[in-house]
Structures are given as C-alpha cells and as structure tokens.
Design a binder for these strands. Structure first.
Length: 201
DNA sequence: ACATGGATTCGCT
DNA sequence: GCGAATCCATGTT
C-alpha cells in the first residue's frame, strides 16, 4: 500500500478531515500490526475557530498546531484520555484533524489487549469507536506528540487498494464543544453514512 | 499561586 | 439523562 504524503495534509483541516475517511490507519507495534479504516473525523481550525485549542493564539500546548503538516498532536483530555490529531495547513497556520473513530481490520487481538489493560474503557466489539478509545486501541499516547505520520515507521496512513469502496459522507456539528459560541454549529464533523462504528448518533 | 473546566466514557437512575 | 473519574493547560489574582 501507498502511504499519504506531506502534500495531502498541507490543506484546510475540513478538506483533510473529509478526505481521510476510508483511508487506513496503520500502527506497527512490538506485538504486531494494527490496521483500521478511518470512519469518523473532526476538523479544528485556527484562532478564529472558538472550539479549537488554537483559539488562544500560540501557547506552549498548541504551538505544534502551527507547525509541520502531517505531524501528530496528542493531548490529555479530561485528565483521562489521550486524543489523536494530525496537523494540517501550511506551517505557520493552525489546523488539525481529530481522529474520532476507526473500524479495526487487522490486529484485533492486540487492540483488544490494549483496551483490557486500560482502566476507563470497556473492551467490547467497538474497539476504536470514539477518540479516547481509538488512541488506546492503537497504542497512541502523548509520547507520540510531534511524531511525523508521513515518515514514521511506527504509524502511517495508507491509501486503500480497493477504490471501489464508495460511500456517502455525513457532515454535522462537532461533538462536545457547546462552549464554542458562534463556532459550535460549523459542520466540521465527518463520518461515513450508515457505518456502525460511529462514536455517537 | 489559585481556580476553572474540558475535542470522553461508562454506569447508574 | 446525569454524574464521576482525574489532571493539567490556561486565565486570573
């Protein structure tokens, strides 16, 4: 399979978020390879997006959102979960895509063992459904912050060989950002229509 | 130095 | 539908 390159991520987050659907997240661990089809994403913008960490301008935490497109932004949410994002836009302009849900298609047992050793999630058949669970299932923590998904040998995104997999894309407001005032209704959550691995209805 | 609250998930009411 | 778990980035004093 061919992996996504820098150019893919060097665009607006809402474009990247939409186009990532159906691509394959590949994670190489010591135990083996985990692969999953990306089912759901959200886009986060720059200082003008009141739901984005970039809304405060450049701070120590969100500095990375202004850096190289294709690197990972992983942060701790609610003191409990690591959330996985990929940086978008040209260097200097903030933007990121949150990976919210995936359907695991390879390495089910490894992903399952990750969930079982985690205190706050249930290890059911929906291993990577929801951004917190996705990060656990794929073994992504804050040590991955700044890692380059374009060149890393631990993690990559690949273009599926079978391009016959057509699907409809649903665009909806983002989850869990009611505080975001005028930005909260932006249709920047994207998911594959009818797919059962959606984080929320 | 302190107070606030969150890009979640699960279990109980 | 609601609240707890749990911690650190950010804004305020």
């Amino acid at each position: 399979m061919e992996r996504l390159n820098r150019t893919f991520f060097e665009r607006a987050p809402e474009t990247v978020a939409k186009e990532l659907l159906g691509h394959i997240l590949v994670r190489k661990t010591k135990e083996g390879v985990i692969k999953g089809t990306i089912i759901e994403t959200e886009a986060y913008g720059d200082i003008n997006d009141l739901a984005s960490h970039a809304r405060f301008g450049i701070t120590p935490r969100n500095k990375i959102m202004h850096e190289l497109p294709g690197i990972l932004y992983v942060y701790l949410n609610y003191g409990i979960f690591n959330l996985t994002n990929i940086i978008c836009e040209k260097t200097g302009k903030a933007g990121a895509v949150l990976l919210r849900s995936a359907e695991i298609i390879e390495g089910l047992e490894i992903a399952s063992s990750h969930l079982k050793s985690s205190k706050h999630v249930k290890a059911n058949e929906f291993l990577a459904t929801g951004p917190g669970k996705l990060s656990i299932a794929f073994g992504i923590d804050r040590a991955f912050n700044g890692l380059d998904i374009v060149s890393s040998d631990q993690i990559s995104i690949e273009i599926p060989k079978n391009t016959t997999g057509e699907f409809d894309i649903i665009e909806k407001p983002r989850i869990g950002i009611d505080y975001a005032d005028k930005s909260k209704d932006l249709p920047w959550r994207f998911y594959i229509d009818g797919n059962q691995y959606i984080s929320k209805k």
